[in-house]
Amino acid sequence: MKDFGLLLLRVGFSALMLTHGIPKFLKLIQGNFEFGDPFGIGAAPSLFLAVIGEAICPILVIIGIKTRWASIPVIITMLVAAFLIHANDPFSVKEKALLFLIGFTSILLLGPGKFSLDKK
Rank of each mutant, 00 (worst) to 15 (best):
G5F: 11
G5D: 09
G5A: 13
G5L: 11
L6Y: 12
L7N: 08
L7I: 13
S14N: 12
L16C: 12
L18I: 12
H20G: 09
H20L: 11
G21F: 08
P23Y: 02
K27A: 14
G31E: 05
G31V: 06
E34P: 06
F35G: 04
G36Y: 11
D37C: 04
D37M: 03
P38M: 04
P38G: 04
G40D: 03
I41S: 09
G42N: 02
A43W: 06
A44S: 11
A44L: 14
P45L: 09
S46P: 07
S46V: 04
L47M: 05
L47N: 02
L49S: 14
G53E: 02
A55F: 14
P58Q: 09
P58H: 07
L60F: 12
I62G: 05
R68G: 02
W69Q: 13
A70Y: 00
A70N: 00
S71N: 01
V74I: 12
M78S: 01
M78N: 06
V80G: 00
V80Y: 03
V80T: 08
V80S: 05
A81T: 06
A82T: 06
A87F: 00
D89A: 11
F91N: 02
F91M: 05
K94V: 00
F100A: 05
L101A: 01
I102R: 05
G103N: 02
G103T: 02
G103E: 04
F104M: 03
T105Y: 04
S106T: 11
S106V: 05
L108T: 09
G113H: 02
K114I: 15
S116R: 04
S116T: 03
L117R: 11
L117S: 06
K119F: 14
